[in-house]
Nucleic acid binder design. Structure first.
Lengths: 348, 348
DNA sequence: TACAAATGTGAGAGCGATTACACAATGTAG
DNA sequence: CTACATTGTGTAATCGCTCTCACATTTGTA
């Protein structure tokens, strides 16, 4: 505040003009090596840092992107942020995180010049998102989506379909023929895709859609518990595939309460590979999404969009993997004999 | 980029000068109501948003703060960010999150004019932090600490001592006389304070320091497991107080592997109330820190520091609470008979 | 009625950078 | 040895806003 060192100071300190200093800073053409040296020396000596706002105002970029996150999904988002920030800091970008009212505030962030682009972790409210995205696209504002592709906009997605398909195949290997899919909110794309993959996988194994029973939750443990309580006694599936691990946990809790053994009486598989999943009893078989990698990929993509305009981007789909533990009915290999402990600690 | 609407445009549109428009925007003195109306109308009509950089350059504030987080502690940080962002967005601030190299980059962020203040979640590396903080303080740069008070700098902390003390008292109620404290890294203040409170609590109950055995971990589940494996057979405590829930989990895993019952053969209590803690078998008794509230409090404090310079701030200590479940030896009241399920779902 | 005080508005000087343009010094070719 | 690139550097306009100062108009007071 008080002691701003300006480009003028540097210029004066080594007897050149502001223009020359600016050229040195931006590694531009035609400055005598000797002058470069002198200027850099002064910059270091004075502790000079170019003022962002002056730079931005006179045409330079701000190298700032906004990461827009809906306000739930705690550890998931933390990992995402870490991934984004990791690449951002490496590439010289800065990350503004926005959680509240991010739909309403997005354009303003851009109009004020705060950010040059957006990374959205769009979840529900597909309508509003679509509207915003089409406005951004029309205005040529760079943005990309994490998680839920929408329209033709650039997106980083995980292979939900592939994940669902892997679960289906695995269930088939176990010989199940009557399965319950516990979905998230009906309009949620992730959940839909997982279901689709699940169905495809079963079909590939010769089972029609009638083999799949359906229940709907809202991703919370409680909703998993309640859906299980509501439908399991009635439908009596052999196996449950929950759209996320929390709901799978809810199912587990219900089954335990009812005295039903897992996987003895019923198999349960989740999606997300949450921190707690490997510690459940039995350890939960689940599908692991590459969250951190989504973050890094998103930021890398955004960086290249901003640095070299014209670089066109489509959808990038990152592979998921099936983490086989015990709740599906598999013998749990890595164990020490303890159902609570798989010895890997790999989620830390 | 192309279609910046400037203050000049607005001025022209309603036949006044830039100065007047500026006054209206900043709610300043002495503008005729009628003119205000006219200007606001034009602003709305043109979709005008003041350019951040121009504003900042000409003396205005940027209302941006940096949230500096060490790169671990996933869900913890997510909750913190949410808290900070919640208040920030409400108060018109913006949050830049930095994880990598935040010690080295902090001053630059300020010198470039990117941010007006810092919120640090400082953990290890006390030396380097102290050095940075003293520089910031000398330069009059606003900052505050979350979690680990250091020197006289403004800080938001949780009552680690109180938490440790509550655990001690609770252990005493159970009649334990020989306890193991499983600390985090030796130089970690949180862990030290929890230990201190624990000791105080025991002393208040008439037990000297010799009643406390000590082991050191690094906050990971694995380190908890290994410390337990290394020391429990030798020391044979009646109860273990781990500096965090993950290590407590490690202890639980070890005990289970050894066939020791919890709380029958040994009581275990953690700290943090992590997501998984209530689902462990047995549900883990632990100390809950008000993480979200730390975030909101931090941002509120920062906002008032920035808005009204001179408002002095000291340390704010937020209370912790003991979450009594079953691992301490208490009957687990809310249960449905199931050790995995406490029926509350309250961490979602 | 006269003059001071308050009120409302405009002109213009920065803020700290970038960058187009001008110009001097040096190098090269005819 | 002139003519013309090439190279290195400086001058000054510009970005969009705030804010001081000056000035015009209205209101209040004696």
């Amino acid at each position: 505040m008080s002691d701003q060192v300006t480009i003028e100071d540097v210029a004066r300190a080594c007897g050149v003009s502001r223009a020359t200093v600016s050229r040195v800073i931006n590694g531009e053409s035609r400055v005598r090596p000797q002058t470069i040296e002198k200027v850099n020396e002064a910059i270091r000596a004075l502790g000079y840092h170019p003022n962002l706002h002056a730079k931005a105002l006179s045409g330079g970029g701000t190298d700032t992107v906004a990461l827009m996150l809906p306000g739930v999904w705690r550890s998931y988002h933390a990992i995402l942020i870490e991934g984004v920030e990791e690449v951002a800091s490496r590439e010289g970008f800065h990350v503004l995180v926005r959680t509240k009212d991010y739909l309403e505030e997005a354009e303003r962030l851009f109009d004020e010049g705060r950010v040059e682009g957006f990374i959205f972790r769009n979840m529900d409210r597909a309508e509003e998102h679509a509207k915003l995205f089409s406005r951004l696209a029309r205005r040529g504002i760079p943005f990309l989506l994490i998680g839920n592709p929408l329209g033709d906009y650039p997106a980083i997605a995980i292979d939900n379909v592939g994940g669902g398909r892997m679960v289906a195949r695995h269930f088939l290997e176990h010989g199940f023929r009557r399965m319950l899919y516990l979905s998230g909110p009906a309009d949620h794309a992730d959940s839909q895709d997982r279901y689709f993959g699940f169905r495809v996988g079963l079909e590939e194994g010769g089972l029609g859609p009638e083999a799949i029973l359906r229940a709907e939750g809202d991703y919370t443990t409680r909703s998993g518990f309640e859906a299980a309580a509501r439908l399991i006694p009635e439908l009596e599936p052999e196996a449950v595939f929950a759209a996320n691990d929390r709901m799978a946990l809810g199912v587990l809790l219900y089954l335990r309460k009812r005295g039903l053994g897992v996987p003895g009486d019923m198999a349960v598989v989740g999606f997300d590979d949450a921190f707690f999943s490997e510690y459940l009893s039995p350890p939960l078989t689940t599908v692991r999404p590459p969250i951190h990698e989504m973050g890094t990929t998103a930021m890398k993509t955004m960086a290249s969009i901003l640095r070299k305009p014209g670089s066109l981007t489509g959808k990038i789909i990152l592979p998921t993997s099936l983490v086989v533990r015990a709740s599906c009915g598999c013998p749990f290999a890595p164990g020490e004999g303890s159902p609570l402990f798989d010895g890997s600690f790999n989620s830390e």
